[in-house]
Simulated scan of single mutants.
Amino acid sequence: MRVLVVLTLILAGAWGAAAVAAEVAGRRHAPRGDLVDIGGRRLRLVCEGPRSAAPTVWLEAGAFSGAADFAAIQMALTGKGVRSCAYDRAGLGYSDPGPRPRDGAAIVGDLEQLIGASGEPGPFVFVGHSMAGLYLRLFAARNPQQVAGLVLLDAATPEMVEMPEAQRFLGRFLTMARIGAVAGTLGLTKPLYLVGDPIGLPPAGKTEKRHGFVSGRQSRNALAEVESWRSAARQAAASGPPSDRWPVALLTAGPRSPERSAWHDARRAAAPAHALFDNIDAADHRTMLGLTHAGRVAAAIVHVRDLAGQSPFTTSVSGRPPHSVHEPS
C-alpha cells in the first residue's frame, strides 16, 4: 500500500512539474511565424530565409505536428541562403481547427488558400515527410503550375497504403491515435513535456514540439487526420501518378531490412523514372528531420531546386548517376 501511495505521489509530482514547465515555456517563448487568415480561420506560417528569384521551399509535415518538425531543416536552408516556409495544418500546433473530415481534399484546400494568402510567389519546391506524401501528390495534380520540384522524406504513397503491411500499420496507428486523443483531452500527456523531442530540434522547434505533445486539441485534430488517411490515399491515387515534368528526390532513412526494403521498393515503384534517391543509413523516420541530418536533407532540397526547369535530370542528390527504380540503393 505504501508503495502504491509513493508511486501515485511521484506520478502526480511529474504531472504537476510538466504542467508548470509547459505553462512557463508557453509564456516565455512565443511561437515563430505569423497567423495567416484563410477565410475566417488562421493557420500558423513560418517563413525564413532571404527572398530571391529561385523557388521558395514549401514544407509539409507528417502526422501530429507541423512547422516545429522542420525547424532544423529551415535553419540549414537559411544558412544556405534559401527561403523556406512551413506551417501548421488546421487544428495542429498553433493553427485554428478546420471543418471535418480532415482528408486530403480538405488539407489541400487549406494549403491552396494559405499559399494564396501568404504573398509568397510560386512555383515552389515542395518537401513532404511521411503521410504528407499523400497530400503533396494531390496538391501537385491540382496545381501543377505551382510546382518546381518535389522532395519526399520517407514519404507515403497511395500505392503503399494498399499494401497489407501498411493496412496493419494503419490499424495500429489509428488505435494509438485514439488513445492519445483521450489521454490528451484528460491532460494525461502533460509529463511528455519533460521527455524532450524525438527528432533532435533546435531550441525554438523543441519548445513548439513539446507544446504539441501536451495539447489535447492537437491530439484530437491529429486523430481526425489519421481517421481520413485511407480517404486521402484514394484521393491521391485518383489524381494520377507524379508528373515527369519536375525534378523529384526520394530520401529514406535507416539501414536496409526486409520490412524497410519493401517500403523503399514501393516508393521507388511509384516515383517517376528520373527520380533521384538517397538513403540516410544513420537516421530513422523521425531523426532524419533533426539537427544531425538537416544538412544532408537541405543539400538534397537545394539540389532539386537547382534542377528546377532543367530536363532531363541527370545527376543524383549525392552527385552520383541516378539509380534506376529497379536497382538497389
Rank of each mutant, 00 (worst) to 15 (best):
R296K: 11
P198H: 09
I107W: 14
P144S: 07
A271E: 08
L223F: 00
R28P: 05
A237D: 04
E227L: 00
V125Q: 00
G200V: 14
M75N: 03
M288A: 10
S311E: 05
R296W: 07
V195W: 07
D284T: 10
R305D: 00
A22I: 09
A308D: 15
A148G: 01
R27A: 09
G40W: 03
V195K: 11
V125C: 00
G133L: 02
P198F: 14
D197K: 00
A294S: 15
D96L: 08
A25M: 00
D69N: 05
V325S: 06
G66I: 09
L152K: 13
V182Q: 12
L307E: 08
A63W: 11
L170S: 12
G122E: 07
Y94K: 01
L201I: 07
L9T: 12
A155C: 12
V214P: 04
A106S: 01
Q310Y: 08
F126L: 08
L250P: 12
S65M: 01
P55M: 05
A238I: 15
H323E: 03
I38F: 10
P322W: 00
A18W: 09
M288S: 00
C85S: 09
R168F: 09
G98H: 01
P121Y: 14
M1Y: 06
S84L: 06
Q146S: 12
D197G: 13
V3E: 12
A181H: 05
T8A: 15
G26S: 02
L194R: 13
P203C: 02
F64E: 10
P191W: 03
P272H: 13
D37M: 01
L9C: 00
A105M: 02
V36P: 00
A222V: 08
L134R: 05
E208P: 10
A53Y: 15
P97R: 14
A266V: 08
S228F: 08
A22Y: 08
A54M: 02
L4W: 13
L188Q: 04
G39K: 06
H326E: 03
N279D: 04
D69R: 11
V6H: 04
G290E: 14
F124V: 15
A283R: 02
F277D: 10
A222F: 07
K209S: 15
E23H: 13
D265Y: 13
A30H: 09
G133K: 07
R234Q: 03
L251Q: 13
I10W: 05
G119K: 08
L194V: 03
A224G: 01
R296F: 11
L150C: 12
L111N: 11
E208M: 14
A156G: 06
V3A: 11
G33A: 05
A30Q: 11
T175P: 09
A22S: 09
G309S: 02
V82N: 00
V82G: 03
T207R: 02
G295C: 05
R168P: 05
V127G: 05
P322N: 06
L138C: 11
D103H: 00
V304N: 00
R178M: 08
G93R: 04
G62C: 10
R210V: 10
P322T: 02
T185E: 05
L289W: 09
Y87E: 01
A253V: 02
A269E: 15
H326G: 12
